[in-house]
Design a protein around this nucleic acid. Structure first.
Lengths: 246, 246
DNA sequence: CGGCCACTTGAGCGTACTCAAAACGCGTGG
DNA sequence: CCACGCGTTTTGAGTACGCTCAAGTGGCCG
């Protein structure tokens, strides 16, 4: 397993001071696979940049919406509050993602957005946003973005509602893999940017079950795991887990 | 339990021929609690009305999007296909709801929409839709609708991902109750318009568990159930189920 | 009345959870 | 540099919740 590097550079790579130079937002705003020039919305965003440390809140559920945020660097999670006080992670966000759109309904956020590590986001103020959307093209872009997010959330609800633990973790790995590939990185080797606890919370499992399942995949030589470093040896094996119900 | 009527009129009430007269869409399009005049979008829809029998598809996952649909009468469900061939219900739709918005991302639907009984929907063709949205007010309305739907789906993902069976069924009953109240009906007495199987599929449970849980609630005198007829005696008891984790 | 379908209820099982302990990584300080 | 301590992760053992399989009930329609 010499090919798995440790992640020493994690914090060094995001030293709380991210400049726009290395942040290739211009090209990576398409990273979501959007069929349009999403970055046409975001150059404006430079005027209001926000830096967050690990664990800091971008916004909290209930906060009135200031605008929409574009992730320039680092990673965040979206958590919806439950009636019993717990929080459930419903999405992870990486470079190029838009965050905060669920507030467009009420004008107030229905979820928290929390930085997983040092990260930087751009705020597009609501007023500017409205003005920008007077252009039909941008208006269509936003609708597509929202539609895509809605479809993604529907798929996630189906995953946590029906699949077994092994299937959920496999789906998670495959989605991470596809996400990195879409951003131009390897689909076989990547670093999980969240804890086992976060993965479990996201998938509706305990962190012990996540850990056990990853170990199981590794014992089958489908993957290699070392801490947050993942190496996928057999994508097809993971996919085939999803093809048979149960 | 004499106050629970049987549902003899179910099919008679929706006899495959719904006129616009009894369908109070004009006022009920606000039924979702939208803070705007949603019906300003939908008068146009009259030009293309669609009637569906129970079990008929409004559209299927993969179909190219023709437009957005407004439910005028009856009930539908949205189902996302899983890789193993099964389908998972991610939403139910009633009078006044908009259906098909998850296709705005790809231009193709990512879920099926299936009629639960005889029902009638209005199609707003995509072209007309785009033209209508040139008006800023309507554009904002649609964004709010999408944001609301997104927030609702996030909440649903959290429910099926973290809550126990009793909590899920309680949440479901409370949401049904709130939905009927919002539409001007009783929040204590209503008719479930879907089967136990559909409820289970929606909540990530088996229909046996749904049935057992309803019986349990009834044995506690929190509700009365007879077939699809529900009478809620103790809303607070159901709510208190959600206040303590586990 | 008979058949069908949706629903209810029961008994036993299996997956994922709970509780618990040990190993590991990482930052800090001697 | 190594020792220490904290938090995360791994692994284990027992439990419980919801699932599976199965029988029985009730409503509806031919």
């Amino acid at each position: 397993m010499a090919s798995i590097r440790t992640q020493k550079r994690d914090k060094a790579a995001v030293p709380m001071q991210v400049t726009c130079g290395p942040c290739a937002l211009g090209t990576l705003c398409h990273a979501e696979g959007l069929p349009f020039a999403f970055h046409s919305l975001f150059p404006l965003a430079d005027e209001k940049r926000i830096r967050l440390g690990a664990g800091e809140f971008l916004f909290r559920a209930g906060d009135t919406q200031m605008g929409i945020y574009a992730v320039k660097a680092g990673f965040l999670k979206s958590c919806v509050p439950l009636t019993d006080g717990r929080r459930n992670i419903v999405a992870f966000h990486a470079m190029g993602d838009a965050v905060g759109m669920d507030a467009l309904g009420r004008g107030a956020h229905s979820s928290d957005a929390v930085a997983l590590n040092g990260c930087e986001v751009c705020l597009i103020p609501l007023a500017k946003f409205e003005k920008l959307l007077e252009h039909p093209a941008e208006s269509v872009h936003l609708r597509q973005l929202l539609g895509r997010e809605l479809a993604r959330m529907e798929a996630h609800a189906a995953v946590v509602g029906t699949l077994s633990a092994k299937q959920r973790v496999a789906t998670f790995l495959l989605n991470m893999s596809a996400g990195w590939e879409m951003r131009g990185y390897s689909k076989h080797a990547f670093v999980l940017f969240m804890s086992r606890d976060d993965i479990g919370n996201f998938l509706g499992l305990t962190f012990e079950t996540v850990s056990r399942t990853l170990s199981y995949f590794q014992s089958n030589n489908w993957i290699a795991v070392k801490g947050k470093n993942v190496l996928i040896h057999d994508l097809k094996a993971l996919q085939s887990l999803l093809e048979h119900s149960g």
